[in-house]
Amino acid sequence: MGVPGEIAGLHEAWQQYGRLPWKSLFQPAIKLAKDGFVVAPYLALSIAESTKILNDPGLQKVFAPSNKLLKAGDVCYNADVRKAGGIIKMEDLKNYKVRVTDAVAVDAMGYTIHGMPSPSSGTLGMSLVMNIFKRWSQLRDHGTSHLCIVDGERNAVSMTTTVNYGFGAGLLSPLTGIVINNEMGDFSAPTEISDDQLPPAPANFIEPNKRPLSSMTPIIVTKGNQLAGVLGGSGGLYIIPAIVQVFLNHFVLGMEPLHAVLSPRVYHELIPNVVKYENWTLLCGDHIELADQRKDFLRERGHELNAHAGGAIVQLVVQSLQNPIKRKTNVGDNTVIHGMLTAVSDLRKDGRPAAA
C-alpha cells in the first residue's frame, strides 16, 4: 500500500482556509461509522461483483456480516475489524509531507483550466488534446471518487480521492477499519512487459518518498478570472478522456450541463488499438449508447470499435456568467461574479454518492 496523504492534505487546507473547528468536521463521518449508512444500489453492485470481500476477515465483517453480502437497502457499519498487517508505521504517517504547489494553468477554447501538476497526468493530457483540437477545424462543425464544491463566495474545490482498485488491496487496516489502498500498483515495474499494455516508464519506477503516476483530473475552469466551472471524475485510465469530452460538450459545444455529462463517450487506451464506445444500461434504467452515425464516422477513418458497458464517472458544477450579480470581495478591489450554479452528479453512478 502507499502511505495515505489525504487527511494530511485536508488538514493543510484547513490550516490555511478553514473556519470551523477541526474536530467538528469529523462528526458526520464518526456518526456514519457508528450508526452505519444505507447501501446504495451502485455500492451493492460493487459488493456483489467483488471477489475480495469474502477473502478478508475485515472486509467480510463490514460488507458481508454473517457471511452474506450486503444488498441495496441494508445498513452497513463497522462493528469489528481485525488486524490486517502491513509495513506502514505511524512514523510514516507523521513524516508525510504535503506539497503545496501552484496549479498548472492551461488556456483552452477561451477558458483557463487549472489542474494538478505531475505526477497527476490529467492536466497534461487535457492540454495535449486541446492543442490538437486547435488544429482540427471539424470540432465546431460536428460539434476514481470525486467531488466538486462551490460555496456562496464562489470558492471552488475539485478533489479526487482513491484507493486505486475497487475495495483497494482487499484488506481493512488495523484498528481503524479503513480500506487499505493498493496505490503501489500505479507505479511501473521493469518486469511489467506485455503486448497489450504500454511499456513500463522508468520515470514511474518505485522509489521511497515518491508519488506514483495518476490519471486524476480534478479541474477548475475560469474565464476572465471568474469561476466558470468545476469538474473531475473517477474511473482510472478513463478519467482523462471523459473529462475532456465533458469539458468540450459544455464549454465548447454549448450543451446543457446534464446533457454534457450524460452524452455517450468513447475511450482509447492506445494499446490495444481499439476504440471503446459506451453501450450500457444504468441502474436507473436509462440506456447510454454512442449514436450509429458517430460509430460510422469512426469506422470510416479506420478505427476498430468495441462496445463497452462501463466508463468514467464525472461530476460537474458550472456557473452561468450571463447577467450575474457582481459583489466586491474582502481582498482588494476584486469583484466576484455570483451567477447561477448548476450541479450534475453522473447517472452512471446512480446520480448520488454511492461509495466504491
Rank of each mutant, 00 (worst) to 15 (best):
A105F: 01
L69S: 05
D92S: 07
V104D: 00
A108H: 03
P117T: 09
Y96L: 13
D80M: 07
A79K: 07
Y77L: 08
A84N: 03
D107L: 05
N95Q: 15
V62M: 06
I113Q: 01
M90E: 14
R99Y: 10
D102S: 14
G85Y: 04
V104N: 01
M116C: 10
T101H: 00
N67Y: 10
K71D: 02
A64Q: 12
G115R: 00
F63D: 07
R82W: 11
V98Q: 06
C76F: 03
C76W: 03
I87T: 12
G115I: 00
G110M: 02
D107Y: 04
C76A: 14
G86Y: 02
L69M: 08
V104P: 00
N67Q: 14
A79T: 12
G73L: 07
G115W: 00
L93K: 10
M90F: 10
Y77T: 13
L70C: 09
G115E: 00
L93C: 10
A105I: 06
A64H: 09
D102M: 08
Y96E: 11
L69C: 08
A105W: 00
L93S: 04
S66R: 13
A103H: 01
K68I: 10
L70A: 08
P65M: 10
Y111T: 11
M116D: 11
D107A: 14
K89Q: 15
A108Q: 07
A79G: 15
K83H: 13
R99N: 13
N95W: 03
L70F: 03
R99V: 12
K71E: 05
T112K: 03
V62S: 02
S66W: 03
A64N: 12
V81R: 07
L69V: 05
G85E: 06
T101M: 12
E91G: 15
F63G: 05
E91Y: 02
A72H: 09
D92T: 11
R99W: 09
K68C: 05
